[in-house]
Design a protein around this nucleic acid. Structure first.
Lengths: 332, 332
DNA sequence: ACCAGAATGTGTAACGTTTCATGCCATGTT
DNA sequence: AACATGGCATGAAACGTTACACATTCTGGT
């Protein structure tokens, strides 16, 4: 007797098709089944509109086809884009994504990791700035932008090359003296390499530079002071600025406007991330992170089981994009 | 005999505490248990670092404490913010969020809905622009910004009031003739009410206005043409523009800049959404949608079981925020 | 015609919970 | 002292799946 008005189970399908439960399971999972039975089962599945119950499956298999994505938030477009592309990469492999906005809160981050360890998700992709997270040996984990020990693969842009590229671009665009503006650093943060790359680029082009590092947690006000202290006769000492993120670049451009300095005529500005504005174009000239590729690589590394040895660090190539805050158009 | 190196189950806890399986279950779920037993179980739980297996629980209860959130993408900041706040609202109720970026693809949207119908998630919150989705009677569903029949609650900003507010603001700020720029409309889209609200506001203030509706799917180029055709002696016929989204406003401002018109001196611009830029401030003066409240309301409506009758439409109040593209500062 | 062996379908145990009927014990009543 | 009562812990069944051991049918070789 069929239960009324309830979602059908394999048992119902088996009854409908007149076969055993196990046969239905085989058909559903693509295991070898005789053609007559196979079509009969397939018809029954269609007729009843059957769909596997992923919770029963998860219980049985100790596999959930679900991956947790730890991220501070999805409000900031760089994070939002990452979430978007990771979702696509997971979907392609028939995995689902549990979104975990953590607000960079260690308690929440640790909570999600515990969840993974107890097999509630098959793995975690995490963009976290917390150095003290405890990740047990057996937990599949891929980190973004932050090295978390040799056992855990880290995927990041080639931040060093990006910094270098920014320096070279500024040099090519005719800058005589430049500055690098950035926030404070935590230690094994990949984005920190933007600095050394930038220095490297400046040195190789004989481009004088200065560096302003914000004390952690401080308001951006320090940048204002820095710029003001480098004004001479109504002109800024720098004709090029490299900002560690597009967000900072945007802030800096507001400051420059207030100081009656024109971008890019008086000062050229390059940011980092490749964040697009609501209109779809870059908010500034920028080093573009390959977000879709980062996402794809994270998922690949996380789910690829028969990978001989997982590389501790994967750097993906960045590109430069003009966003109107540099002087390319003058050169044509 | 304890299984080695495996996540502990209730059985392990029961053995450790010397009680029956059911007793552990009761403790875990906060059902009445004698104090001696309770503490013994709690200690065992702590000792073994036990955590319930949500898949076994989901199977048994036919409840998963998981909600799917259907959204075109998370790249656009308005969507990203929505995802962020919905996640927070769900977390508060100990629900988890399955993020479903659909790219507005009907196939994918329908797939997720089917999933919900088969009890893989407890409900769906959906921001979809697809009029033909099939949602069965019993599926808990809350729509955002789009009415999907009287059975399904819809949560939206008070778009009418927002349009009206924009018109009134422009009037208050001294505009003599304004225009409303928008994209094409699908029918039961709540945001369409921005138009009638705007007209209402203009009429009540005796403010002359025109309206430019983009044909669906067309590039924004039509806006350029519209504006150019309204130029007279190097001046624009309008001194105020209301754009249906901040994204459009951003685009329009680029066009205006190219036409050598200054914002806000020559033309004041108001957008809609309250999208913030990477720097954290508004990209234009705008009607701000109450995103956190929308998120909270969606979750509330979805999970509140003992609600006598679910309202078919909930409108939440919008506010106006100056983002530098209007002339407030002149009035002080 | 018979049988070995391959091929394929069947049935059941197990995954980790929750829930409910059952039974035990202690308390209080007559 | 005997019994009714209620409070609690117990243990087994069930949720929907997978996988494995077993049973059955089919094929082809002698």
């Amino acid at each position: 007797m069929n239960k009324v008005n309830s979602t059908p189970t394999m048992k119902d399908v088996a009854a409908e098709a007149g076969v055993a439960l196990g046969t239905v399971s085989k058909v559903v999972n693509g295991l070898p089944v005789g053609d007559t039975y196979k079509t009969r089962v397939e018809e029954a599945i269609k007729k009843l509109n059957y769909q596997v119950n992923s919770y029963a499956q998860g219980l049985k298999l100790q596999k959930t086809r679900t991956v947790a994505f730890l991220i501070p938030n999805t409000k900031e477009p760089f994070y939002g884009a990452l979430a978007y592309y990771i979702n696509i990469a997971l979907l392609k492999r028939k995995y689902r994504m549990l979104l975990c906005s953590t607000d960079s809160d260690m308690g929440q981050e640790q909570e999600y990791i515990k969840m993974a360890q107890n097999n509630k998700v098959d793995g975690i992709i995490g963009l976290t700035y917390n150095p003290d997270l405890v990740i047990e040996e057996g937990t599949p984990f891929v980190a973004i932008d932050r090295s978390m020990g040799s056992k855990i693969p880290c995927v990041a842009s080639d931040n060093f090359a990006g910094g270098q590229l920014a320096a070279e671009k500024l040099a090519d665009l005719g800058c005589r003296k430049v500055a690098f503006l950035r926030t404070g650093a935590s230690l094994n943060n990949e984005p920190n390499k933007r600095r050394s790359g930038f220095e490297n680029g400046c040195l190789s082009r004989n481009l004088p530079y200065e560096m302003k590092i914000l004390n952690d947690g401080d308001p951006y006000q320090e940048f204002d002071d820095f710029l003001i202290s480098h004004m001479k006769d109504g002109k800024l000492e720098f004709d090029g600025l490299f900002c560690v993120t597009d967000g900072i670049a945007y802030y800096i451009m507001k400051v420059l406007r207030r100081m009656k300095l024109r971008v890019p005529e008086d000062v050229q500005v390059i940011g980092f991330d490749g964040v697009k504005n609501v209109g779809g174009d870059y908010i500034c000239s920028t080093i573009v992170q390959p977000v879709p590729e980062i996402a794809e690589m994270c998922v690949e590394l996380l789910l690829q089981e028969n990978m001989p040895v997982k590389p501790p660090l994967v750097c993906l190539p960045v590109t430069y994009a003009c966003g109107g805050t540099t002087l390319e158009h003058m050169k044509e």
